Amino acid sequence: MTSVNSLVNIAVFGIGGAVITAALIGLLLVVAGSGNGTSPRVRTVFGGASVALLVLLPTLAAANVLAGGAGFWTAFATAVCVAVVVCAVNMTLLPLAMRRQAAAGGAGALAALRPSLPVAAVGLVICLIVGLLGAGVAALTV
């Protein structure tokens, strides 16, 4: 029964995180399209919120799995899967926001921004690190 619990946690926290991340990026697009562009401070706040989601949601999913009686490696796998879902949304939607901002500001270099295989590989490594961090913190707190 633990595997079903893990899948439910991945779905709830992963999809919930994806929706929240998409909403943050949509809000960033609205702010970028408001005519005056976005300041570095606003971009830093949005980036910090994205990083907080990327760390917090896998930790909560791992804590939920550990509270259900599963082991550390199951919690780690769940945390990695949640991080991958949230990171995939970030890697898919952030270039869209950057292209829109580049089009509004006239920056041609950012308009050609596209995710690549090395970026995806680095994202996967980051997800593994975040999953390990989340499972470790969850193991210490539960």
Rank of each mutant, 00 (worst) to 15 (best):
A61I: 01
I10H: 08
L132E: 11
V125H: 03
L96Q: 09
T141S: 13
L140R: 13
I129E: 06
L7C: 10
T2Y: 06
F72K: 08
T21N: 11
A97R: 07
L133M: 09
T92R: 15
V80T: 05
A120S: 06
A135C: 13
P118L: 07
M1P: 08
G16S: 12
L66N: 14
V51L: 15
L7A: 15
G134W: 00
T44L: 13
V82Q: 11
V80S: 10
L133E: 01
V12I: 05
S50C: 08
V65R: 01
S50E: 14
F13I: 00
V82T: 13
F46E: 06
R41L: 13
S6L: 15
P40D: 15
T2M: 11
G26H: 10
T59G: 05
P40A: 15
G136L: 05
V82R: 14
G26C: 05
V82A: 10
A102K: 11
V42Q: 09
A88V: 01
L56S: 14
T38M: 15
A97N: 06
Q101Y: 00
F13W: 13
S3M: 10
A79V: 08
I126L: 10
A23H: 01
L54K: 07
F13G: 12
A103F: 03
L93I: 05
T44K: 01
L110I: 04
R114K: 12
V89S: 07
M1Q: 10
L28Q: 01
A67G: 09
R99I: 00
Q101G: 02
T44H: 09
S6E: 12
L94T: 09
N5P: 00
G48R: 02
S6T: 10
R41E: 10
V8R: 11
Q101I: 04
S6K: 14
F13T: 05
I10V: 14
V122W: 01
A77I: 04
F72P: 01
L96F: 04
F13V: 06
A120Q: 04
L124V: 14
V82Y: 09
R41N: 13
A79F: 07
A135E: 09
A103H: 08
A11H: 09
A138C: 03
N5F: 04
V45Y: 01
F46A: 11
V19R: 15
L27D: 03
T44Y: 00
I25F: 04
L124Y: 09
V125L: 07
A77T: 07
A120I: 14
G106P: 09
I20M: 07
P58L: 02
A120K: 01
P95L: 04
P58Y: 03
G33W: 01
M91N: 10
P95I: 08
G71L: 11
A109C: 10
A138S: 11
V31H: 06
T92I: 12
M98E: 11
T141Q: 10
V51Y: 14
F46K: 00
A63T: 14
A67N: 05
L54V: 07
A75V: 12
C81E: 10
V42I: 15
S39I: 00
A70Q: 05
G106F: 02
T74H: 03
G33Y: 00
A22S: 08
L60H: 02
V12C: 06
R99H: 00
V55R: 01
A23D: 05
V142N: 12
V142F: 13
L124Q: 06
A109H: 09
G48I: 07
G136D: 10
